[in-house]
Design a protein around this nucleic acid. Sequence first.
RNA 1: CGCGGGAUAGAGCAGUUGGCAGCUCGCCAGGCCCAUAACCUGGAGGUCGCCGGUUCAAAUCCGGCUCCCGCAACCA
Length: 536
Amino acid sequence: MKNHYYVTTPIYYVNDKPHIGSAYTTIAADALARAHRLRGVPTFFLTGTDENSQKNLEAAEKAGATDLQTYLDFMAEIWKNTWRELGISYDDFIRTTEERHHKGVERFWRAVEKSGDIYKADYERDYCVGCEEFKTPSELMDGKCPLHPNRPLQKVKEENYFFRASAYKENLLQLFRDKPEFIQPVSRYNEIKSYVERAYEDFSISREAKKLACGIAVPGDESQRIYVWFDALINYMTAVGYGTDDELFKKWWPATLHLVGKDIIKFHCALWPAMIMSAAKSDALLQAADGSPLLPERVFAHGFFTIEGYKISKSLGNAVDPLELAKTFPFDAVRYFLLREIPFGEDGDFSLARLEDRYSSDLGNRLGNLVNRVIAMSAKYFDGKVPNVDAASASQAFADTEWTGASGLAALWQIIEDKIQAARLDHMLEAIWSAQGASLTTANKLVEQTQPFKLIKQDPEKTAAVLYALLEACRQFAWMVEPVMPHVAEGILIQLGQDAASERSKGLEVLKAWGGLKPGTELRPGTVLFPPLEKV
RNA sequence: CGCGGGAUAGAGCAGUUGGCAGCUCGCCAGGCCCAUAACCUGGAGGUCGCCGGUUCAAAUCCGGCUCCCGCAACCA
């Protein structure tokens, strides 16, 4: 595996502002990117917008925009701003109307063409005169348009370019056998594998330009435009220089992880690798040293969630605006909630009651309260400073409790590394909160079992050891949650008298080591990390 | 037989090498008082959808059934 981490989100349609669903994907990618950066892995995090879709044109007209490009520019800014406000640390934001994308798409198309995998054929579709639009088979009821059942559908034939995907059926199945981790979770693996086995056919990859007002022209044939999915997938390459900067491309490609919603897993797992296999035949830039195609390493499909039990839908008007949510909750709390509450890869439900529940219980009562009580006691009993004790002995002073000290935290770090590798941030967070040995739960128990608030009157030396252990644990907890809650982590570190930026530069291996908190460090107690919610 | 997912305590969920059924919230009782009315302990509450099979042992593997839910070529 290459020593880099290149993670992507889907590129989003800009026919509306971001809602909580697209924020979910982007937050997950952001947390994974932050986790890898913290580990010193060269990381590239890409998101962007899909601007060559007919849908955008319709949205622009509906919004009364003077022209399409103005509308696209306006919407792209809205998306960028939303991500900025939510603390999304993307390294690049690609728009598929950009010149660099067009150049890369052209190069890719030419490569596939040179490989002999593009051909022309007639393509027949159903056209409803009532709706004045083409209908897909899935939109039909009993072979008729559900809105105009008494008007017969017209069969409209059009000559399009096709991609000879079927030629790669065996290669795909081989890929699935050799690298089962390519498609995750496993439930999706089975779905895609059986789809390719039984129903894998060539894809139509262009439309007549006169019927499609937007999109990239087919190289060498101005009368046709490239079908939006064929161009969209290539964004993962054009953003890192394919078609414009070979050196940059070599640095980042292949992608480590494509994070997608379950609805578009098919395009990413069945179409995209076949496209690359074809293009790689004729473009050495897409070949590994042994000549094999450079395919993305992994595609992970997360589930969808409902809002209070209902599907996210515009007609219901229940699409939650993440920026609105950020006015009520610290956005770190929303990030925590989404990544913790919904099993990654499965469907879930977004409910305000559950969010409040997690906020006050997990964050306020366990994490926030632990930090607060431990720092308050230390400051009170030890002159506002980290107690002056030997770190090594402080880690082993509590053999009679559940708390396992330095070795327990080391074990917890190992779980965290495994979960990050598997992209299971929900499991990672669960472990930080309730793993046996060392976790937020056992740390709170340690306070009860040792009762430093009483112990201080009898045995100040042992109290110092207890509080040092708890303070040091808080420091490590801060770095554990940092990828998911960067602001919260910094808030904890500040109270512990740490400078987050200079600490970070030491590298995670140093930060993980027991004893990073120096005795005598000035504490800064007082800040409440998770203020109680106003009762409404 | 189109493909696939789910069914575990009042609610929401964990539980992928088969080994005494767990977590969070809520509820009841107690402890503590450092802390954000927070923390800790104990308790009540489950035929792990139904039927059958494999096994010393199945929520976990196999077969059948019931009920929900997605997807089914142009739709993040």
